[in-house]
Simulated scan of single mutants.
Amino acid sequence: MVKVLEIIVYGAEVLCPSCVNLPSSRETYEWLEAALSRKFVDQTFKITYVDIHHPPEDDAKKAFAQRVIDEDLFYPVVSIEDEIVGEGNPKLKKICAEMERYGFKAV
Rank of each mutant, 00 (worst) to 15 (best):
V2T: 10
V2H: 10
V4G: 00
V4D: 04
L5R: 06
I7V: 15
I8M: 02
I8R: 04
Y10E: 10
Y10A: 08
Y10K: 13
G11C: 06
G11V: 07
G11D: 09
A12L: 09
E13N: 12
L15F: 00
P17G: 10
P17F: 12
S18M: 05
S18A: 09
V20C: 07
N21Y: 10
L22W: 08
L22E: 13
L22T: 12
P23C: 05
S24P: 11
S24R: 08
S24M: 05
S25I: 10
R26A: 11
T28C: 09
E30I: 11
W31T: 12
W31M: 13
L32W: 07
E33P: 00
E33M: 06
A34R: 15
A34Q: 15
A34K: 15
A34N: 14
A34V: 09
A34D: 15
A34I: 07
A35E: 14
A35I: 00
L36V: 04
L36Y: 05
L36W: 02
R38N: 11
F40Q: 07
F40H: 07
V41A: 10
V41E: 15
V41K: 15
V41Q: 14
D42F: 02
T44S: 14
T44N: 14
T44C: 08
F45T: 03
K46C: 07
T48R: 09
T48I: 12
T48N: 07
V50T: 07
D51Y: 06
I52P: 03
I52S: 04
I52L: 11
H53C: 01
H53R: 08
H54M: 06
H54Y: 06
P56S: 14
D58V: 04
D59G: 06
A60V: 12
A60D: 15
K61S: 03
K61T: 05
R67C: 03
V68M: 12
I69S: 08
D70M: 08
D72A: 13
D72F: 12
F74I: 05
F74L: 13
Y75G: 02
P76T: 13
V77G: 03
D82Y: 00
E83F: 01
E83H: 06
E83D: 10
I84Q: 04
I84E: 05
V85L: 02
V85K: 04
G86V: 05
E87P: 00
E87S: 14
G88A: 13
G88K: 09
N89Q: 12
P90M: 02
L92V: 10
L92C: 07
K94M: 10
I95G: 01
I95W: 03
C96Y: 04
A97F: 00
A97T: 11
A97M: 01
A97H: 03
E98C: 09
M99K: 03
M99F: 04
M99Y: 02
E100G: 05
E100V: 06
Y102H: 15
F104A: 01
K105H: 13
K105V: 15
K105P: 04
A106R: 13
V107G: 11
